[in-house]
C-alpha cells in the first residue's frame, strides 16, 4: 500500500500573551491509502490542530506534511486551493455549512469552485447527479431544499460529509464527526464512514472516545504533543 499522507516533525505553538503553549512537539505520522485511521487523545491534546495542519487549513511552525510525496508547504496559493478543494475533504466538528445556501447548494459548492463559472455549466448535470446520489445514500434526498438551520445535528454532519466528498477526494479528514451527536446518530455517521472506507476511501477521523476509535483499522494516540 502506498503512503497517501505523512507528517514529520510537526510542531505547533500558540502564543497567549506572555506564555506559550506547545501543542504539537515534533509529531510523526503516516497513513496509507485505503486506511481508516482514528486519532484519539484527551481534550486539548491537539487533535484538531493536527487535522487542520494535514488539511492545509493551518500552518505548522516546523516539520512538513507530504501528500503523495509532495511537501504541501512548497505549494503555491493556487495549488494549495486545489489541494483543499480536490485532494482532501474536511468534515468539521461544528459542521460549518453556509446558512445562506440550502442543502444541495452547500454540497455543490466545492464542485462549483473547482470548475469555475464556465466549466460549471458543462459539468452541472453529472455533478448534480453525484450530489443527489451522495445525499440519497445519507438519507437526505428529501431535504435538499432545506436550509442548514432547519436540520438536526446529525443531518447537518451528513451534509458536511457529502460536501467533503463531492469532488471525490483521495483523503477524508473528519474532526469529531460524532462529537455533538447522541450515540445512535453518531453510530449512523460512523456507518457511513465505514461504508465509504469499504469502497476504498482513505479516512482519518479524530475522536476522544476510545469506543469510536476502535472502529478504525489503526488507532493513533496523541499525548503530550506526540504520538504514543
Amino acid at each position: 500500500m502506498d503512503t497517501i499522507i505523512s507528517a514529520t516533525g510537526i510542531c505547533k505553538t500558540y502564543k497567549l500573551g506572555q506564555s506559550t503553549l506547545e501543542v504539537l512537539k515534533g509529531l510523526d505520522l503516516s497513513v496509507n491509502e485505503g486506511e481508516f485511521v482514528a486519532i484519539v487523545g484527551a481534550s486539548g491534546s491537539g487533535k484538531s490542530t493536527l487535522l487542520h495542519i494535514l488539511g492545509a487549513l493551518d500552518k505548522a511552525d516546523a516539520g512538513n506534511v507530504r501528500y503523495k510525496q509532495r511537501d504541501i508547504a512548497s505549494f503555491s496559493q493556487k495549488k494549495l486551493n486545489l489541494y483543499r478543494n480536490g485532494s482532501v475533504g474536511f468534515v468539521f466538528q461544528f459542521y460549518h455549512l453556509l446558512d445562506e445556501l440550502n442543502v444541495l447548494e452547500n454540497v455543490l459548492l466545492p464542485a462549483m469552485a473547482k470548475h469555475g463559472t464556465i466549466g460549471w455549466f458543462s459539468h452541472k448535470k453529472s455533478i448534480k447527479a453525484r450530489a443527489m446520489e451522495l445525499l440519497h445514500r445519507f438519507g437526505l434526498a428529501d431535504r435538499i431544499k432545506h436550509r442548514p438551520y432547519q436540520l438536526s445535528g446529525g443531518e447537518r454532519q451528513r451534509v458536511a460529509i457529502a460536501r467533503a466528498l463531492i469532488n471525490q477526494p483521495k483523503l477524508l479528514l473528519a474532526d469529531e464527526p460524532t462529537g455533538n451527536l447522541d450515540s445512535e446518530t453518531g453510530n449512523g455517521i460512523l456507518k457511513v464512514l465505514e461504508q465509504l472506507n469499504g469502497d476504498g476511501q482513505t479516512v482519518i477521523m479524530v475522536t476522544h472516545d476510545d469506543n469510536i476509535a476502535s472502529r478504525g483499522h489503526k488507532i493513533i494516540r496523541l499525548a503530550d504533543g506526540k504520538i504514543v
Binding site: 483543499r84 468539521f92 460549518h96
Partner: peptide
C-alpha cells in the same frame, strides 16, 4: 465565518 468556510473548501482569496 463564511469566508473561512469558503477558504477551507479551496476557494481563492481573490474569488
Amino acid at each position: 465565518k463564511d469566508i473561512g468556510i469558503l477558504k477551507s473548501i479551496g476557494i481563492s482569496a481573490i474569488s
